[in-house]
Design a protein around this nucleic acid. Structure first.
Lengths: 150, 150
DNA sequence: TATTGTTATACTCTATAACTATA
DNA sequence: TATAGTTATAGAGTATAACAATA
């Protein structure tokens, strides 16, 4: 192999991959704790995030994306609808299916959630010096690309 | 404020914080799915990780660190002991307490878990070019520092 | 006959309340 | 009297199995 990165036979790359994995998992866990609505379960939040990205989806599609079984998604969608966070409409082409989409309330809640987590992360990053922050700023788009690979 | 970073009134910093948050949460979720032992619950895995870092702890200390109530930790420790992943010994100074520590089996399992997640992340990073990987490698120690701040 | 979604039911994980043993 | 841990019991959240409606 000539150019592909990283190469796990090289010490520097092993150390970097290990540091990245450990740091991402740790910061990820702490970010997850910064929640706007404590009454929503992790899967309920995740469904809202998926709907925000995908626009709308059927219960079956949501179940597959969230790795839960269809009966669980039936319950989750019903709870979200009761909380006014999603809307259910009949499927235009298949009367067996339904179309789930987020409400304006959910959109606002997700925006508030992002804002809160960004603020927490920015505050944490104040413990870095300028050179360190510059390295993170340079890596941010790369991490974003990495997150969307595969 | 003169030197503290990041500054959320600067567009570049806002974009970087937002990209970091989004990417870290997304990659973190995907890393979490790379599990060695599907039969262990998230909290059971977390307890093993805590024991690996701290050496040993009492059930009460573990309950506080994992943010679960003492009766839940009683059950978790009992399950981990039944699986041969932790050892319970009497506390040397207080006969009310117990000392929980990880077994060699647990240590090997955690090492295998790290290896599997590193391999997954390294494979994902093969979708980057050399310049991008270099930016990540430079940022890795900074992310690790960030993860341990506060 | 296959697929989508729901209902009925059971299991896992965690919590609260009450209890035992020790400090 | 206070603290560490356990037992008993209840509440989320998810799973499997059986069912209804539609393709």
């Amino acid at each position: 192999m000539l150019t592909n990165m990283p190469d796990l036979s090289h010490g520097d790359d092993v150390a970097a991959v290990n540091a990245l994995r450990s740091a991402i998992m740790r910061i990820g866990r702490r970010l997850k704790h910064q929640r706007v609505d404590e009454s929503l379960s992790p899967t309920e939040m995740s469904v809202l995030g998926t709907l925000a990205r995908c626009g709308s989806a059927t219960p079956g599609e949501l179940a597959r994306k969230e790795h839960v079984q269809p009966p669980s998604m039936t319950r989750i969608v019903a709870l979200l609808e009761a909380k006014g966070l999603v809307r259910l409409e009949p499927h235009p082409e298949d009367r067996r299916q339904k179309v789930v989409s987020q409400t304006e309330t959910a959109e606002a809640m997700l925006e508030e959630s992002r804002r809160k987590r960004n603020a927490w992360l920015a505050q944490l990053a104040e413990g870095l010096d300028e050179a360190e922050w510059e390295k993170l700023r340079a890596a941010a788009p790369v991490l974003e690309k990495l997150a969307h690979l595969q």
